[in-house]
Design a protein around this nucleic acid. Structure first.
Length: 569
DNA sequence: AAAAGAATAT
DNA sequence: GATATTCTTT
């Protein structure tokens, strides 16, 4: 729990005592604004000149949560300058002006909002939203002291809400503002603007999807399930419906009984458990599969990332009686396999698997069905593999494969913490293609993503984690003579950025061992290759020789080359 | 009765 | 072919 390590400070009566910098030259109206704000329990520091205001900011960036500055026809430059300088503080511009270009300029310079005078109470009251917005957008490391409690507060409130509604927090948050009795959306991590249509703030990173949520109706519209495409995009795009998401923590999942009770219901008739659109949900589940905490630690990431196990079924709400198919995405399958491995073959029964998987909304039937397929597939695949596995690769007497640690692993690691496919990561099939699911999990798992229409356990090129927990090295992808790196690391490279997480948790020891194995093998070419090591194909050898400037090859070299497709002799 | 597993339907 | 559903067995 992230919150457990950090000090989790909740702002009890937020937004009271929010610190506001007020920059207004006209003394009379400044006093008026100030008193209005103070009535709402905001703490106001009034300045009459940009210099003073800027100085105050520069002295201590933490002094203010939000600033309100007035722009006038006669002096807009000062305001612009302030906006430029005060990029770190949400700034609301107020004005008598109705000049569109002035408004534009202010917004372009980063103003959070442009409010036209006279300032109504409502307009002022809601300025806190900008602070929340800021707090949620600030990355964890950048989060200032003054914003931290606000973020914590928001998280806390959302958590309460989520618990109340018995829902996982998803990435869309509605009903933040009960006062207006309408739904505001935090879709893509933003709060809608308080009072006037809000333009995208120039200071936000440009990669954010522009989503101009300006009023309740729009927000609601955005949250409408897209009914027409129930089968087309069943996977991750929608959140207003039943979702199979990770029941991440015990507290998020009140009781096992409830979980099991819920199991068979989620997809059935009554949607009462899942009051979908008003639910508070948090996506962004990186590999560790936590939910609420991610609001804290990844609030800035929340917007784009989709829960890896966010199986959102269109139309899955109360009206839809038809069960929707479970999309056994790689992540879901990975959890399945992990559960199966953890249980061992004898104990791997649907109910237990389901329990271990901790995937909300998934039913025992779903698991049973998948298990059936899984077993059938295994039955089909395994005999071959076993043959292959025990088939001697040339001469195994000299370099028995069994003595190689990497080649002979205990078939099953109960509760070892790291699932076998984490220890023996595999990577994607060259044809690997994610169908729209952003793989946030362990990169090793990413490779479990079955290439379309195929099961993952038979397609990855390097290491095959046995479906029942006995990973077997079957084939090395590329053998590079010039750089005797571990074949794993060479494949890392091909895997791009997914490797970051992978690298992190991958057991370096294994890599070293393989590295050593490869080195040894290369240094003693007269010995037979250990099982799992494959001699380089003719093409690779020729290419490498060519690369090294050797263009003529004696015929004998060619003749000795094995069939590139035959990895085990 | 409930769960698992197999067979069958979609 | 993948998954749901139904049937049969435990």
């Amino acid at each position: 729990m992230v919150g457990a390590t950090d000090d989790f400070v909740v702002w009890k009566d937020f937004p009271k005592r929010l610190k506001i910098l007020l920059l207004q030259k006209d003394e009379a109206s400044a006093a008026e604004t100030k008193s209005k704000l103070e009535e709402m329990d905001y703490l106001v520091s009034l300045y009459h000149s940009e210099e003073d205001a800027l100085e105050a900011i520069s002295k201590d960036a933490e002094s203010f949560h939000v600033s309100i500055v007035e722009v006038t026809a006669s002096d807009s430059c000062g305001t612009f300058r302030f906006l430029e300088m005060a990029q770190d503080i949400p700034t609301i511009v107020i004005s008598d002006e109705h000049c569109l270009s002035t408004m534009m300029k202010c917004i372009a310079l980063g103003a959070a909002e442009f409010l036209q005078k006279p300032l109504s109470e409502d307009k002022l009251r809601n300025i806190w939203q900008h602070v929340v917005h800021k707090a949620l957008n600030a990355g964890g490391s950048v989060l200032s002291k003054s914003l931290k409690p606000i973020k914590d507060t928001v998280v806390s409130m959302l958590r309460i809400q989520s618990e109340t509604s018995e829902h996982k927090i998803e990435e869309k948050v509605t009903e933040i503002d009960g006062k207006h009795g309408c739904e505001k959306t935090m879709a893509n991590d933003r709060l809608s603007a308080p009072s006037t249509p809000q333009l995208e703030r120039g200071r936000f990173p440009p990669d954010r999807e522009f989503q101009d949520v300006t009023c309740c109706s729009v927000a609601k519209k955005l949250l409408q399930p897209r009914k027409s495409s129930s089968s087309a995009s069943k996977s991750v795009e929608n959140t207003c419906d039943n979702s199979i998401s990770v029941a991440n923590t015990v507290d998020a999942l009140p009781s096992k009984a409830q979980h099991i009770a819920a199991e068979e219901e989620v997809n059935s008739v009554d949607g009462s458990k899942t009051d979908e659109c008003s639910s508070v949900k948090a996506g962004s589940l990186p590999s560790n599969l936590h939910s609420v905490e991610n609001i804290e630690s990844h609030a800035d990431d929340v917007q784009k990332k989709k829960s890896v196990l966010d199986y959102s079924y269109l139309n899955g709400g109360r009206n839809n009686r038809k069960k929707t198919k479970v999309d056994w995405t790689p992540e879901l399958h990975r959890r399945f396999v992990q559960a199966v491995e953890q249980l061992g073959i004898e104990q791997a029964i649907p109910s237990k698997i389901l329990e271990l998987m901790k995937v909300e909304g998934l039913t025992r039937h779903n698991v049973a069905s998948h298990l059936q397929k899984y077993r059938m597939h295994r039955r089909h695949i395994l005999p071959k593999d076993q043959d292959r596995r025990w088939q001697p690769h040339r001469d195994t007497t000299a370099r028995g494969c069994i003595s190689r640690p990497i080649l002979a692993y205990p078939p099953y690691h109960p509760n070892c913490g790291a699932p076998t496919n984490q220890i023996y990561p595999v990577w994607g099939h060259p044809n690997y293609r994610s169908h729209g699911v952003q793989m946030l999990g362990h990169a090793g798992y990413a490779a479990w993503h079955p290439p379309p229409q195929s099961w993952p356990w038979k397609t990855y090129p390097l290491v095959r984690a046995d479906a029942w927990g006995c990973p077997v090295v079957t084939q090395y992808g590329q053998y590079r003579m010039s750089s005797p790196r571990s074949p794993m690391s060479s494949d890392f490279d091909m895997n791009g950025d997914r490797n970051e997480m992978f690298r992190e948790s991958y057991d370096l020891h294994q890599v070293e061992m393989i590295d050593q194995l490869v080195k040894e093998t290369m240094s003693k070419p007269w010995l037979p290759l250990p099982l799992g090591l494959k001699s380089p194909s003719t093409d690779v050898v020729l290419a490498e020789l060519n690369r090294q400037g050797i263009c003529t090859v004696p015929p004998a070299t060619n003749a000795a080359s094995p069939d590139p497709n035959d990895f085990c002799g």
